[in-house]
Nucleic acid binder design. Structure first.
Lengths: 192, 192, 192, 192
DNA sequence: TATGAATGAGCATTCATTCAT
DNA sequence: GATGAATGAATGCTCATTCAT
């Protein structure tokens, strides 16, 4: 049992490693098996197909990400603090899960319609959540009365723009400091 | 001759259409041919390989995008005006070239190392260009003394975040108005 | 008319050139057309297919070879003289028609059953002719009473073995002298 | 393991069968698979490509041929005996390995430059070996003082001329008797 | 349960041949 | 007649998946 979960996890880890480096279509099941140190056929004992393996990873990753991001936000915080914490959590996630991040954000080629829809839906949920955050902050007077959809797009964009330098270029930043700076810009803009 | 360019263009158009909907690996040469209304072999009269076809499209697209974006920025403008125009041009490009945008911003799976390097280089160039813009604006006192790398990441993120709602979700916005709002947020932040 | 024959000949010449260097399957019709200085489609005005083109060349070549070989043998000659002349004529043909020789003797891969049968038949005819020569010589007492089939195989082998060094390796020999030596060996053997 | 070698051998056998009948370019991988009684993809588990499969067969065949030919020649023999044994071994090889012989002596179309060079080199080695044999025999006074290159060409020709009647026409001869006759002609010539 | 040998659907690419100009 | 752009049948090869062991 423990061994079973163990092996499943080993497959997932191996898959994350290979997928993040090569992308879905350039990754062969055999490669994953080799990295996992098991036989090719064994993967199919745990996952019905390559696609399902990817889907499982994505779901798992998304859950993990979502968890990392949301866990830290208690409702008593101000919008500014919430944003700062979001940015910080996001950065930390990217730094600590580079391979996962690459898979999750490297908005990969349309692999499957169902998968694409799933990803879209997840994105939508994330955005709705953010939109609520902004709506509340506007309502409480913390931030200006701006279009919440546009706000969401802008802030989401800022979020996702950070993974490339961190994951691909190995940019080393202190998440806390960076979050501070980013939040400052978001809140106060760049104008002198 | 006119006809020859014509057919080349028809192939490119068909390829853009199919590629943007299905992605590189799910696109069959035959499908492109069918959409272009020609025989499979004909594509190879104009493009040596599937990969080269994609590469041609990407280069062409990038050139078009680059052109659309840069053309509009005369040096006499203020940083704020430059940003507004950039945002507007970017939005307009996305709106007017949805399929192309999808390929340009989405089709990022590692298809070929050379291609990946090319894309990375293009991104780097774009960012360098932006970084210079910010450095100048800081120097002239137009914007605050912020880390230009971070600024570039943030603003790039804002840029690229817009294509999804426009292209995928069919969000209809007036580019001029949106650019105004976005620039306002960038310049002045969101704090009340 | 003259022009028509002219063009046909130009195609054949070009084909011989290319075929002898690249072999049937590695030769593209377009290549032949380019070498002939005409359009690809034009070949089909003169030859119904690639195979037929090859067949025409082979027939023509064989006729030429046969002619070169046989022309020189008047019946009044002794067997020894006949053999000497045959060898000499064969060598001369190889020297003067290297490309043709390569096609004719480079017993190429089975391209077509009909063609293979044709080639076999030609070989058989050649051998029958030779066999008759030997039978007559034996009858007249000029040569020993040996099995004519075996004799034919041996002498044919000697013949065909000469084309490689001449055509491929560019061996320069005086046909008359070589024929003398070869005939000497055939007639008297190699034993001291 | 035994099974693995087994399958590899079955593929080679099937390939020899088909290749010898149809030639390289007319042989489809699928056909080989069907004859071997396996799936198309299985061949690629044992051979990386069609060309490599041919190359393996050629190398194997050449080794086998070379082995059959050379094994039988101890140095204490006279030149005459050596020649007789060579002829006999050659004939026996042709009789016992008809398909292989057909591939080895017939499949000469330029398929690949590397392969062609390999074949040329093998031929050259064979000829050098023969040339040495003749040089020694001349030196020991066993045979007349003839040009060794010419001698080699002639005797090689005699050798290779035998495979066609044996393999193609199914000529049944007793190798020992035929070798005797051939050697007699080589040594003593045909003149009465 | 674990394996990896076997499989064959699937696809990019080639090139002889056609036919509209 | 001459052309060469267009064609699609043909084929080598890949790799996710299966299944006998």
């Amino acid at each position: 049992m423990a061994s079973k979960e163990n092996k499943r996890d080993r497959i997932i880890e191996a898959a994350i490693q290979v997928l993040s480096k090569k992308g879905y279509h350039n990754t062969k099941m055999e490669e994953i098996a080799v990295v996992a140190g098991i036989g090719k056929g064994t993967i199919y004992e745990y996952f019905p197909s390559k696609l399902q393996l990817l889907q499982d990873i994505l779901e798992r990753s998304f859950y993990l990400y979502d968890h990392s991001i949301k866990a830290d936000i208690s409702n008593s915080l101000s919008a500014e603090q919430k944003i700062r914490r979001l940015v910080e959590a996001h950065l930390r996630f990217c730094q600590e899960n580079k391979d996962l991040t690459r898979i999750l954000f490297f908005d990969t080629e349309i692999i499957d319609n169902e998968l694409r829809d799933w990803a879209c839906q997840k994105r939508r949920l994330k955005e709705e959540h953010m939109q609520l955050l902004f709506a509340a902050a506007i309502h409480s007077g913390e931030i200006r009365d701006l279009d919440t959809k546009m706000l969401t797009i802008i802030i989401s964009g800022i979020f996702s723009s950070f993974w490339v330098p961190v994951v691909i270029e190995g940019w080393e930043i202190d998440a806390t400091i960076a979050a501070e700076q980013v939040t400052d810009i978001i809140m106060c803009g760049i104008k002198r």
